[in-house]
Structures are given as C-alpha cells and as structure tokens.
Design a protein around this nucleic acid. Structure first.
Lengths: 246, 246
DNA sequence: CGCACAGTTGAGACTCATCAAACCACGTGG
DNA sequence: CCACGTGGTTTGATGAGTCTCAACTGTGCG
C-alpha cells in the first residue's frame, strides 16, 4: 500500500482536517521537518499547526521570549539577528524556504535571536507539544532535528568565514552570491543598505557605494528597489579577480 | 539503592574495566555528555572510550574527514577552524573543558571544520556506535546532544556578534574577556598573534600592537609567551570607555 | 505639493593593512 | 660556551580602505 501522501487528495477527503489539507498541498513539505511524517498521522495529533503570514519588517519571534514553537518557512526570507553588548544590531544569518527556525523552543529554551521577515513570508507554526507527540511515534524525527541543528551550525560557520572576513568589496560579492541561494526565480531579494550593513559589518554608505559600483560594473541590475538580477558570470569573474589581487 | 557513581570505588572494583575507572575519576564527567549515563552501564557497553593527549598545534580531526567519533574535552583548549574559499584560515570558535566537539560524526557526516589543540589537551574519544548503543538505554542522551548543538550554535552566534564586529581594539578586548571563560586558574591561555589574527580578522601586526598597548595600559600582563594575567576591572573599564566613544 | 525616509555621492579624518626592519627566545652545532 | 639560524614578536613609516559628516537626490505617501 502506498504511503498516504501519494494518495490523490479526493480519495479520502474525510480524513483531513482543514490544516492537514494545507500541509498536503504545501510545496516545501517534503523538504521540511515534518516531511517524513505521514499525513494521516499528522491529522490524528491533537495540537495543530497554524499558518502565519508576515510582511517585511514584522517580527516572527524575539530573543529571550519563551520559545513555544518552531517555525517552518514556506516562502520568503527571514533574518536572524541579535543586538551586541554595545547595542548594535547584527544579522547572523538568513533562513529561506523549507528552513526551520526557532528550534531552541523544542528544548524549552527561550529564543536565542530575533527573527524578522525580510520579504513577504509564510511560515507554519509547529508547537513544541506537537513535535513531542509526533516524535513518540516517529523515531526519525529527533534525528532529522539534529541534522537541522548541524546544518544551522554549518550555515553559521560558512557565514562567518565568507561574510565576516576580508575586504568590504569581497564580503559584498559573497553576499550577492549567497542571495542567489534564496532566489525564487531569476530575481533575487535585494536587502536594504541598512540590512546589508548589519550583515557585513560596514556602514550604510559603504554598502551603497559598493552596490552602485557593482551596478556600474554590470554585476547586478535593480529592476526595483528590493530586487536584483545578478549576472552570475560577472559576479564570479569579480570574485576571482578579487582573490588574485590579495 | 544509591546510583553507581556514588559507591566508593573500592567497593566493587571488579565491575570496572580500566577505561571505565578513568571515567569514574574524571573531573569533568558530570558536565560532559555522558554525565547522565551511569558507570555500570558504561562498563557493560561493547565499544569503548579512549583517552587521547595532544600537544599545541596537533590536529584532533580535519574537515571533510569521515566522522567516526565525537570528543569530550577533559582539559585544554581546542580551536575549530576552516579555510575560506580564498584560502585564508579562520578560527570559528574555541572549545574548553567538558565541551563536546565533532558532534556531526553522530549523524554519519564528515567533520565540518578542523579541530586543533591550542594548549596541551586531553580528550575522550566517543565512537559513534558507543553513543548509539547508549542512546538505546538512555533516552535522555539524544536530548542532551540536542542541547549541546544548540549551545554550539549560541556560541557561534555570540562569537559572531561580539568578536567579528566593531573596531579592532574592541574585538581584542572582547577576545580577552572570552579567554577568561577558559581559564584554569588565575592565568589565561594567551593565543599566538597568528591565532588572534585568525580569530579577529586582523593582521598579526595589528594584533601585536593592540596587545602591547593593552599591556602598557595595565589590562594584562604576560608572565610568559603563552599565558596572561588579565585584570578584570581594567578590562571592563576599557570596554566601557570604548563603547562610550562610539 | 511637500514631507519623510532610503539611497547616493563627496571630502576629509582616521583606522588598519602593508612593507620593512629590528628584536627576542630558542635550539643547534661548532 | 658562544655564534648562528629560525620563527615568532615588536615597532615604524606609509598608503589604501573605511568611517564620518554633510549635502543632495530620488521615491513613496498623506
């Protein structure tokens, strides 16, 4: 018998409560935390998933707040940020479609960072109790969670090595490269200069100058304020020539 | 009946194989991953822990190598580092006594970074199969592992916000503060200028100049090349006045 | 239309990297 | 024992890269 998720939806409509339906149709489900859980099981569980939409600038959760749920990103980009001891905001990393954020909630801890929407965002809220209930029937779930922790750590490490070190121009080029990973088409989300400066530890002015310069060099175009088309070959060439000069 | 670990060692010596004995006497055991596992159980398991000693500069494991074991640090300091795309070495963070490194091995992944001893180091090697075997009898173990992943992530985030941003002098002061966390007495391990520059993304010369300056200001003394006495009040004062000027 | 705010651009100041030289601690071999 | 080389550290002089301050431009919105 085939697993539940490949049964055509009209076959047993009575099985699914409204939210489970949404899950069934979700484009990122198979890449997400609960991708291994079958829908029938999800339907049976008491605590429920809820969908949340956010506009740019809205907060998903805040550092120090009690963590009651983790969140799977269905679309859009979320930034994780912190304020340093001296009161400056620093963007730690980005999360995109199918990423899981706020995992610390699964441990009963407070959130470790602020999560803020960069674009329009759709997330699914996964309460702690839901994960715990599912984990009892699904021993793979904790393993999947651990893998996600490790990959968050990998992201943090990569961000650190590639986006935190070297000349400003080089960091900006690496950022553009990273942004292409979150593209949902040929256009890429282009952060505000403020966001760039918080990601790359530079001033708004320097970020602006670099973007302008790279536009002149044909590395990117900006059809509108918040989007860019990045020309990959020009970007790569810029990155390469930049490494040589060092 | 009291748990095994509080029974005086001479009571049932026959129970313990040689390595388990070492565990019983280990100073960091109760803070370490296997602190929750009782010794009798540890004794029964087939795969065994082994002790390893390293001198400064020796490698514990290398990035990309197949991860066969995680390691609990019993003493000393280990640095986790990576080389960036442009070929520069970057120190990501430090690990000290009772920390667990190389957790990615528990997921069957290759190591994500190089781990290198900064000081004389003693570690316990925990093979993957050992952890898996123990996890079967000890359901708390995976939870403990997850907590350690989260705290590694917290460390990475803190390193990022405090040690990767701001003026060189400020980053150096934050580093000194961080080093006090790893102190095993009143003396602190003082990294080589090379290591400092790889941690703080600055040149060796700048690191050297800053250390000299801070010595002149009475923030630290260096009884020998690799150790420092850090004067906490002077350090704090320096950090504060440094924040004000920004 | 005009206000608010993000982004751009310029000029000057300052930080930090670079290059170069000297210094020091150490171990080696004469 | 000392001369010597080696590798890490310190210090200086100079210039490139960024920050700061300031003015200006563009964009969206009441």
């Amino acid at each position: 018998m085939p697993p539940a998720q490949v049964i055509p939806l009209h076959a047993e409509p009575a099985l699914f409560n409204p939210q489970t339906r949404i899950c069934a149709e979700c484009g990122v489900r198979k890449f997400a935390l609960l991708g291994v859980v079958d829908l029938a099981e999800l339907d049976r569980v008491h605590t429920h998933i809820s969908s949340i939409k956010l506009s740019p600038g809205q907060s998903l959760y805040s550092a120090q707040a009690p963590g009651l749920a983790a969140f799977t990103l269905r679309s859009g980009i979320v930034r994780l940020e912190r304020t340093s001891e001296r009161g400056e905001r620093r963007i730690l990393r980005l999360a995109g479609a199918s990423d899981l954020v706020g995992m610390e909630a699964m441990l009963g801890q407070t959130y470790a960072a602020d999560a803020v929407a960069c674009t329009d965002v759709e997330v699914c809220r996964l309460p702690r109790s839901l994960i715990e209930e599912l984990a009892r029937q699904q021993p793979e779930l904790p393993l999947n969670l651990m893998k996600r922790w490790q990959s968050a750590l990998d992201d943090a490490d990569e961000w650190m090595t590639e986006l935190c070190a070297g000349a400003a121009r080089h960091r900006m080029l690496r950022l553009l490269l990273k942004l292409t990973e979150y593209a949902e088409g040929d256009r890429v989300w282009l952060p505000s200069r403020q966001e760039m400066s918080a990601m790359l530890d530079m001033t708004i002015e320097t970020a602006s100058r670099l973007v302008s310069q790279l536009k002149r060099e044909g590395v990117l175009d900006t059809p509108d304020q918040r989007h860019a088309v990045i020309h990959n070959d020009a970007l790569m060439a810029a990155l390469r020539s930049d490494s040589l000069s060092t």
